[in-house]
Write a protein that binds this DNA or RNA. Structure first.
Lengths: 237, 237, 237, 237
DNA sequence: AATGAATGAGAATTCATTCAT
DNA sequence: GATGAATGAATTCTCATTCAT
């Protein structure tokens, strides 16, 4: 996790250009344009020419930084999953209370998904468009994110706040809750706010698995989460 | 729900051929072939020629039963969502106990998803490849399925088994649980059995929302579900 | 040698079209156009679009009868070498005198080369542009032609007309003499007639290898060849 | 023949660089790299970038010493034909016996061809890839080489060793014999040694054209040639 | 109704050449 | 003089769709 996002990206895709800083800059240009277009029209309906045009470069230039079109998709998807892997840890930094930490993890996950909504849907649509090797790169990154969720759950279990549970199932229920905000936004967004969605998911999923000890803390901690988030939100402004 | 599946399909896609029975037969041929190919290689990587070949017809024939390639995708996805909408009601037919009914709904949903796994993933990948109007047709059908889940939840609430809850959120958590079995099968399938997955999802999601009255019944009903399913499974043989 | 030229060609290159007669007709169209263009501008400077245009078909059609552009080159070169392999035997049919037979072989070879002059040069330019497997197909055909020359030489040796000789070297001297008429036509054509070229080559190459017995016949037979050719030429008119 | 090879090359292709010595050095670098690549992959399959890389320079630099890619081909082919024109005279220097001189000419020609085998084939493939003016430059050089052969033949005729003959035809038969060693090396090399090939060609081609006087000397002189060559070979060590 | 040959627009990719540094 | 990033025209090949038979 010590490598920067760019370096990670660079390690997967080869470029004909030497200057690493330039490679990062150009790739960022390309990825930004491609993300927008892929999200709007999908990978196959987007042409390299369109990407180049939106990125303000020539079509030929794209191929100086990428071997084939599919590499652009890989870079785009890497940015998404690495967005997850980067933002969530930042959000839970310094939080010691295991339950709040878990809640905050889910909360942060839902918020990144909200921010990268189109890209998240894109990831679901397009991961299978990648070659097997590239697909595995993405799945590996997704597992890293899951690991963060798993750690948060384990923290609660160690603290005796969560009792019995099939951890694998719970992880994916939480992950899917987060992803679901993007996947089903066409239905949810008009019916429930993100705040209520997060709270609802947490209540439904966590209440059931809490130990008696945990139950006592649940409502309170959920309240903390809300305040916490509001404060942070205010900071942004 | 009075119209047959075929008639529904027919109503969305126009054909140059008069004989309705023939239309149904040909479309079934085409859709079966297309589903297999789309699931394996995706919509864009599959050619009309390939579909025709696998269906044992000529490429030209496809266009007698469909206006464009995207219509084939629509028919394929319709079959998936209508698979959901048909099988779940069948599974809960005659069950009166509201909690068992809800559990059985989720259980049946997960099992259809398991059976149509590739097609379910396909639906996630490809719905956005449809034109807006076609996409809405699919989403409407998905809503019908959700309605079944919603009814089952409402049944429990009316019976006082479920207390407070954001129903929209709970619906989608249950739906995503079912879909998740296909979407994350690459991770889950090697770690947990379908039976355990269903049980786990139900425990995690429902325990939390049960009223005190409901809680008392939960374990028992879950046990009933398991027996129920086993018996049915045996019947099939 | 029982298969027709077209069948031979068909056996090397696969087509998406079933109807064999159609395949032959279309390929002939394509090859005729391609030969003209390749001869004029070379393989790489000729585009598939140009070939299609000259052949009076669409660019897409070309790919119904050929897998890639290089296949067109293969078909073109096959036609050249099979032109050799077909015309020479026809020219020596029914000739029993071994020496006349050898002379007539060389004479016929030079005349095909003269007729397919541009294509012969093309073969020299472009054989190395083929993939190894395709190149070998062409070389195999060339060996078949050489075999005809070899047989004619052997006939003379068996009849005691030619004495000592490294047959491999002599074969290629005769073959190169024929090819040379096309390869160096830029120089030769303005300085010597084809008839004189053939006679000159034969004199220079054969006199040296004749046995005493052969020498006695040489001038006479060469005279025969000239008359023979003239008569035939007259027949054509 | 007073101008140096470099100057000749320089006179055909313009450069943006002033310093003549530098021009020669850079061009030599480029031509060496290009020859290797053209011989291996052909002119069109070789990119300027590849040439530059193998030459250890930047792609941009190539264009300081050459106006376009085709100029590189011209320089490469010039080097080949000038290789012929330079080595053959060196080999016959000081030989007075006209017949030995002729034999030695052919022998030397075959040996340059053997040494520049790939480049000779390249010349056959690629001369037509040149623009007409450039092609004529190469053909002019080839004529110069032919002139050497012609002189040697004429020497024999003047000495009464060769009788009647169409000189133009004989020249090209000898030239093609030499070139043939490279052109048909795929067949010949495994069947006959270069020494035997040269001897065979000379026997076949010259015996036939010898006068009675010449015939008497032939075998002896051929023997001389072999010894001569062996000695020279030994000298090299 | 069915066929499958034909079309041609359009996509990815390459590479000779230029030019700012 | 040298570099190498950038350009964009040009090329091969694909495939949805049509239509004569």
């Amino acid at each position: 996790m010590s490598k920067s996002k760019e370096t990670l990206m660079g390690s997967q895709v080869t470029s004909h250009v030497e200057d690493e800083a330039l490679v990062e800059r150009r790739r960022a240009q390309i990825v930004t344009a491609a993300t927008e277009l892929f999200a709007k029209k999908g990978f196959y309906r987007t042409t390299v020419k369109e990407i180049a045009k939106l990125a303000g470069v020539s079509p030929g230039l794209v191929y100086l930084y990428v071997r084939e079109k599919e590499d652009v998709l890989l870079l785009v998807l890497l940015q998404v999953v690495e967005g997850y892997a980067a933002e969530i840890p930042k959000a839970i930094e310094g939080i010691d209370d295991p339950l709040l930490r878990l809640m905050k993890t889910v909360d942060a996950y839902c918020r990144v998904v909200d921010r990268l909504s189109a890209a998240t849907v894109l990831a679901y649509r397009s991961t299978k468009s990648l070659s097997v090797e590239r697909r595995e790169i993405i799945q590996d990154r997704e597992l890293e994110t899951n690991e963060i969720v798993a750690e948060a759950i384990k923290g609660c279990m160690d603290a005796g706040l969560i009792s019995r549970v099939n951890v694998d199932v719970l992880i994916y229920q939480l992950v899917l809750a987060a992803h679901g905000w993007a996947l089903k936004s066409w239905y949810l967004r008009s019916r429930v706010s993100l705040d209520d969605y997060v709270a609802g998911c947490l209540e439904n999923l966590l209440t059931g698995v809490m130990s008696d000890k945990g139950k006592g803390l649940f409502e309170n901690t959920l309240q903390n989460l809300k305040e916490y988030t509001e404060t942070e939100g205010a900071d942004d402004v």
